[in-house]
């Protein structure tokens, strides 16, 4: 039942409690995202939950037997998603290594991606309405592979700009072909 620790030095003893994933420290190079990103997550979870609940409403109005149970399930899912939002945000992290960027996210479905700087094709900075209100931005790292999908959300806008400049500089110094 050990958790995934890729992107970190493989711990000598695979002790799940000692895995740096759950408690990203300052010393191991992992950088988390702004705690304010919880707000964005809460809003999007809430909207998703409301949509889910709204879908069940017609079935209740039609007096089908599964109308109310479906609504109950939707409400429970929404509450769980909302409750897990802080943990989800804490699980997002990135790390600038010598030659590649490592990105991780997810609690249930854990994902770690490593992208060499030289593979960068372009960097996007996106800001949604809620994120903008909180002063956050999302940085997207695009390579020639569509599946790479490294998007670091919840960065403070100034940090995002600085990180973008840093990444472009790193990519420029390690430029490789396609």
């Amino acid at each position: 039942m050990s958790r995934l620790t890729a992107g970190d030095p493989v711990p000598p003893d695979p002790d799940p409690a000692a895995s740096p994933l759950d408690t990203p420290g300052e010393d191991d190079g992992w950088r988390g995202v702004s705690p304010k990103f919880v707000g964005v997550e809460l809003v999007s979870s809430l909207i998703g939950g409301l949509v889910l609940c709204a879908i069940t409403v017609p079935f209740i109005l039609l007096r089908t037997w599964f109308g109310w149970p479906a609504l109950a399930v939707a409400v429970v899912i929404t509450i769980v998603t909302l409750a897990l939002a802080p943990r989800r945000v804490r699980a997002i992290g990135y790390r600038l290594r010598a030659d590649d960027l490592v990105f991780r996210r997810g609690i249930m479905f854990h994902r770690v991606v490593s992208v060499p700087y030289g593979r960068m094709q372009l960097i996007d900075i996106n800001r949604g309405p809620v994120a903008r209100a909180l002063g956050l931005a999302e940085l997207k790292f695009v390579t020639a592979a569509a599946a790479t999908g490294v998007a670091i959300p919840g960065l403070v806008a100034a940090d995002a700009d600085a990180l973008r400049d840093r990444l472009v500089e790193l990519a420029e110094s390690r430029r490789v072909g396609l």
Binding site: A6, F109, H110, T143
Partner: peptide, 23 residues
Amino acid sequence: QSLRITQGPLLRMLDLVDLAVQT
């Protein structure tokens, strides 16, 4: 282009990972 490693709940139960090489 990039490397990815993932682990869902089922794989975690089996102590496995899913590796992908992205091109």
